[in-house]
Design a protein around this nucleic acid. Sequence first.
DNA 1: CGTTCTATTGAGGGAAGTCAACAGTGGTGG
DNA 2: CCACCACTGTTGACTTCCCTCAATAGAACG
Lengths: 259, 259
Amino acid sequence: MFPPQVSALESFTNRLKLRSVITASEESALHGLPGRIIQVGAHQDFVHLGQNVDHACLVVAGLVGRFGQSRDGSRQITCLYIPGDMPDLHSIVSPTISWGLTALTPTTIMRLAHTDLREIAACHFGIAEAFWRDCVADGSIFSEWTVNVGRRAASARLAHLFCEMAIRCERAGQGNRHSFALPITQNDLADATGLTNVHVNRTLRELRSRTIVTARSKMVTIHDWPQLVSIADFDQAFLLLNRTNSGMSAAASRPRRGG
Amino acid sequence: MFPPQVSALESFTNRLKLRSVITASEESALHGLPGRIIQVGAHQDFVHLGQNVDHACLVVAGLVGRFGQSRDGSRQITCLYIPGDMPDLHSIVSPTISWGLTALTPTTIMRLAHTDLREIAACHFGIAEAFWRDCVADGSIFSEWTVNVGRRAASARLAHLFCEMAIRCERAGQGNRHSFALPITQNDLADATGLTNVHVNRTLRELRSRTIVTARSKMVTIHDWPQLVSIADFDQAFLLLNRTNSGMSAAASRPRRGG
DNA sequence: CGTTCTATTGAGGGAAGTCAACAGTGGTGG
DNA sequence: CCACCACTGTTGACTTCCCTCAATAGAACG
């Protein structure tokens, strides 16, 4: 069970490195994190609304959605997570959660104890800062999704989602922006865009017939990237993919234990 | 100009204390932060999309909206900020921003330099953690807003917004949940709920005629709180208003300079 | 090789948008 | 102190985008 864990922690570290500067000792501390592998079936919730958690979840394989739910049971997905992402990194500082995580496809999760995550964050200020920055990036995505469902037409909403996932998959080394895996049903696409499955189906048909994008059999193929970007009104700035280092780490703690 | 700053920093500290444990030395460090007071007119943007900032903004008086904008100029507000809030605390770790801040009413802002904020975060791990947690709380609000505009009918969207602001104002010591200031036009309410000003007007009329809530002349009066909560399908858990302390601070840095 | 989930299509309805006119409201200056 | 102007709120008529309901086809899985 160790090899998959190591590669999962490597892809998590690489995700952090997209936005933050991570030193070698910090990287090896991250790679040394203990975790437990869990398998989750498609359409199974594995973190529940209102739950109190003592661990965070790293996506090893599959696709995860963070969602909110209204009384009548209808759901709104507020972010998608691909392998290497940690959907509930937030829970380290706020362990009572008000949303859920669901597997959109059969998914492998690695559970990391809060105590371990807190310890390396406390020992390596650079890691704490990287965690903080990743939480901010997540917030930025939520905020952009509010714009998406609040102010864009159906075709633009879907186009925007495809653009976002294209860039994120590309940067994570999982395919490229013209072809990447997105194992999600039209029903879940509807929950992600604030539409109904019927309207998603019709809008996808339109985008397909205009030879802009094809979303079929768990893969997205983008035929005309510039036009998709134009339809979506997409600007990737909100993904915060420019690596920065605030200098807080330098001003602050050097690791107080051997990395 | 010093007395208003002190009270502004006090209300900011109080906001942090709603969610985090702040020690006395951390509190006095926060109160000692230098800042510059700025006046912003109604409907003026004071932080612009794509800008690179070296300071964060503390709301001293007034009302601020964070917004995203689409090509055609239509806006979606993704969060409202009341006095004591710091809408772009995030910018400490991610200074290139992809959204804007606008004053919804004449507003007083206190500008705090990133360098100063980074320094006290680096010296006081408890403050860094409180900042981080507040960023997570902001993200939680964005996420809930996505659910709001994506999956709720017009009356529920407005009701949810009123419930949220009622609780937040109450907890900030600015009125109570039955009566509080919300100096916002119907146009801006539309931008916050993903509706049009015309439909907001009609929906407000309906809520008023049912004697549930009156939003008039910069004040919101809630006549029937339980029914408003029911219409909104409101659960305040997403505001993360339970004070927690992860224990990271204890495990980590004690202040390395005198607080 | 059937069962179940997922995708597709049609018909009709409804919530919210658009356009347009007018009425309050508040600030400003003559 | 009133007249003016710009902004905000209000209402009506009409339109449209998306939803609902329903039936069927296709795909995946054991």
